[in-house]
Amino acid sequence: MPSIKIQSIHKSFGELKAVNGVSFDVQEGEIFGLLGPNGAGKTTLIRIMLDIFKPDSGEVIILGGEMTEAKKNLIGYMPEERGLYQDITLERCLVYLGTLKGLSASETKERLRPYLERFDLAAHKDKKVKELSKGMQQKAQLIATLQHEPELIIIDEPFAGLDPVNTRMVKELLQDLRHQGVTIMMSTHQMHQVEELCDRIALINRGERILYGDLADIRSRFSGHAVWVQSPADLPPLPGVEHVEDGRHGSQKLTLSAEVSPQQLLASLVEQNIPLERFEIATPTLDEIFIQMVQEAEGEEK
């Protein structure tokens, strides 16, 4: 059973169509990436999933049904616009937010402790939130999202504002949570993080879903008709190679004509006794797919 199932969601604000018929599922126990350029409608979609906004039409099934007050305790949400009470101590702020998720104050304090230690915030728990650095507040927000041990976590831009050390820590934390069976949906436009973490993705542009599915499938689907070749010798002219592009560390990217397969190219290289250090099907990075898809989508509109 999917943790989130959204079907044909439409939502407009005045003239602006923020979400236009988007559907996708987030499966239990996976890390799902909701991707899209700024203003694509990601945050609106998340707010609809969380019942903050009502959709104009379409259906959201979350944890097996409609959103209820009881379900709010099973969900951890970290919005893109981070918000904590600034004028109270970190511990009091987190305890209050924890009690709003159905925990008792003492229970929250108990659960907080390991997180505060893991995030190096234990020494700061009695400071006012406004006295903490931006990165610390970011980590505190993450604790507020996780402390009640939710079944489903929805995070908008989890890595914004984090330094590389903390980024790594958060990444490991998300992977740990996945191992524990927690479902995570993250929205981001940091593609390399998505490549490392996500099992499946949906790409949204201007309120419409333009790509959806298993990350590995998508990448192979987009692997163009090209190969990476690295050789200590100079490459002779090869039949069926339309274009040669220099890459890093002496690699070259060969774009093949439609009639030639990578296997045929490899056979001809071997036949000519050309020494090979690398021969690899060139799959595009998610970044490239993202840009390509967004450009195509916008080209179609024009």
Binding site: R47, L50, I52, E69, K72, N73, I75, Y77, M78, P79, E81, R82, G83, L84, Y85, Q86, L97, L100, K101, A144
Partner: peptide, 17 residues
């Protein structure tokens, strides 16, 4: 107003009606 300004609101309304 503070909760709107410091953006606590979104976290609150996904915890409490």
């Amino acid at each position: 107003v503070d909760e709107k300004e410091n953006r606590t609101m979104e976290v609150l309304v996904t915890s409490v009606s």
